[in-house]
Amino acid sequence: MSNTETKKVKKTAASYKPGSLRYIWYKLRHTPTAVIGMCFVVILFILSFASPYFLIDEASGQPMWQYIDMRNMNALPSAEHLFGCDEIGRDILARVLYGARYTMSIGIFSTTVSLFFGMLLGSVAGYFGGHVDNFIMRCLDVFQAFPGILLAITISATLGPGFEKIIISLGISGIPGYARMMRANILSIRGSEYAEAALSINCPTSRIIAKHIVPNAMSPLIVQTAMGIAASGLMASSLSFLGFGVQAPTPEWGSMLASARNFIRNYPHLCLFPGIFIMLTVISYNLIGDTVRDALDPKLKD
């Protein structure tokens, strides 16, 4: 009954609890840079899945992203092909749009994998302490003795090429960071005064975990996740550029750049557009991530 009343009242930032998911969402909707970022991501996603249906070569009826037209080999940008054509005459615009799905979603999925396992390991280590903690942390030490990208390269070489495999390898190489952070949060919260206060008023353990430990341990993790999506999107395209992960002829942006690189002397336009789109995507994710961080960590905002 009061629901209908509150709907009429214009909501302001103050009407949400700071740090809650609703507050983050409010902030995202009301920060212009974040709105631009979200619009770019959503529109590109839609275009990526819709473009094979409307960007069709008229003569053959094939979708343009895989239609090979040798007459247009390395064609410069023109009215017909806005971004030009690649080394075997495929339309670059159609390929860039089709390929958007990879770079954009690999970042999200692999960060989810890292976040899930990182949280699990970190909270087990932080909560049980002792030998369990020691064991988990030493394992993470080993994984952190590899630079992230090298670990991802090695794992993806072992798993072989493919979309899911690059998600797994990027996901695994991200776990230690999240696990460490979760463990540190849990340790600091367990020692905090409010956790002690909750314990002293005879609050049940399950409630302490659900109401005090998890929500407070989450917010630095959410910030890390928001920034991590951009970073792993970038890493995914780097891996494809090196020839691991998603491979040609799939129009992943990194692998498009890898094949365009051989023609850089004579046809530099091949290198231009995939790179621009990687950059725009990463910028969008970073803009969203910055806003989430500001919403959760008021200390940093100024």
Partner: peptide, 21 residues
Amino acid sequence: LLCNSMPSFWLALLLVLLFSV
């Protein structure tokens, strides 16, 4: 923000294009 979002390999390609080619 721009620097942070630029893939290093793409930047490398652009630098080759400008300064070498």
